[in-house]
């Protein structure tokens, strides 16, 4: 199990994280811009957003696989951001990653047994027999047959490969695992298997998970808390049920209503926020609130000031002026506004 740590101290703390990429000609791209959150021991935080939201870069920066420009990341008592690259090595044992594409994240020239053994060889002093036992155990955890150790990745389906990738991430009993879109490339039937597998692993281990995905429904299923990103910033955080059922930011509501309900009658009659416009370039983000160019409730203040994080009924925060201006929601859900007269641009609903 994990090393000794105070259960009151969050396992992962991210403070004012910024990741900037130099894109030439003196231009800078703020992929992640002032993001703060924490993940408790044994907790799963879902980080949801669309392409270009900075969610994956955030995950990479937490692991120092992308270099943070500023801000701090703590794993337990260790400040990850302060370490030199040589000092990072022992940390690799404590934090792991599962990538989206199980086809490219496994080494095609190594057997499954070798790939699972490798981290044990590098990071532990276990004997060969002990390592072998750990490999078998890891395969049990992900419900794969122990006979598979001598096989190569190309003999497995996408879902099976993702099980192997999860086994490899879990084999050192890490404190934190970043899952970057782990089920997005999988078919529905396989996706549900992997989601259930992750749920089982969460129950049995003290490992903390940062679960990054674009699918709010998947995030809702696997995460106790959810954080929503848009254009490099957190727009809403809170308990997953609250974020999903009573979103307090219009973007969260739009994201939610964009997921089709598998019921033709309800899907075709429900009120939906269908967003206009495209996501602006992160090179030239809009002034004030970054979502305002696509927001059906945008007000004057939204162009002038960046909205502060406002505490929401039922837990969490949302960065939206609607809580203090216009309808003055004061921490309530934005959903009733769909029927109200606060719309500043027409809502596409049918």
């Amino acid at each position: 199990m994990t090393t000794t740590s105070e259960s009151r101290v969050p396992k992962l703390r991210v403070e004012d994280l910024e990741v900037t990429f130099d894109v030439g000609r003196g231009r800078k791209l703020h992929a992640v811009d002032g993001v703060s959150f924490h993940v408790d021991e044994g907790e799963t935080l879902g980080l949801v957003g669309e392409s270009g939201s900075g969610k994956s870069t955030t995950g990479m920066a937490v692991l120092r696989l992308a270099e943070p420009t500023s801000g701090r990341v703590y794993l337990g008592d260790t400040e990850v951001t302060g370490l030199r690259s040589r000092q990072l090595r022992p940390l690799r044992k404590r934090m792991q990653i599962v990538f989206q594409d199980p086809y490219s994240s496994l080494d095609p020239s190594m057997t499954i047994g070798q790939q699972l053994d490798e981290p044990l060889k590098v990071h532990t002093s276990l004997s060969k027999a002990e390592r072998r036992a750990r490999v078998d155990e890891a395969l049990d955890t992900v419900k794969l047959s122990r006979r598979y150790t001598s096989r190569y990745p190309n003999e497995f389906s996408g879902g099976q490969r993702q099980r192997i990738a999860i086994a490899r991430a879990m084999i050192l009993d890490p404190e934190l695992v970043v899952c970057d879109e782990p089920v997005s490339a999988l078919d529905v039937s396989t996706q549900s298997q992997i989601v259930n597998l992750l749920l089982g692993i969460q129950e049995q281990s003290r490992t903390s998970f940062l679960f990054i995905a674009h699918d709010l429904a998947v995030v809702r299923l696997v995460s106790a808390r959810t954080a929503v990103m848009y254009l490099g910033q957190l727009v809403e955080t809170g308990p997953s049920a609250r974020v999903y059922d009573a979103p307090a930011h219009p973007y969260t509501a739009a994201l939610n209503s964009a997921i089709p309900i598998p019921d033709p009658d309800r899907q075709r009659t429900r009120d939906r926020i269908v967003l206009g416009g495209d996501q602006p370039s992160p090179l030239t983000p809009p002034s004030g609130c970054r979502f305002r160019t696509r927001c059906p409730f945008a007000m004057e203040v939204c162009a002038e000031e960046a909205p502060p994080q406002y505490p929401i009924d039922g837990g969490g925060y949302a960065a939206c002026h609607l809580h203090t201006h216009g309808p003055q929601l004061r921490g309530a859900s934005v959903l009733p506004l769909i029927h109200g007269d606060h719309l500043t641009t027409p809502l596409v609903s049918r």
């Binding site: 669309e50 674009h214 699918d215 964009a258 997921i259 939906r272 269908v274 967003l275 596409v348």
Partner: peptide, 11 residues
């Protein structure tokens, strides 16, 4: 496509 763009494309 992203889900919000998918919703609009389907419309």
């Amino acid at each position: 496509l992203d889900v919000t763009i998918q919703a609009r494309t389907l419309e």
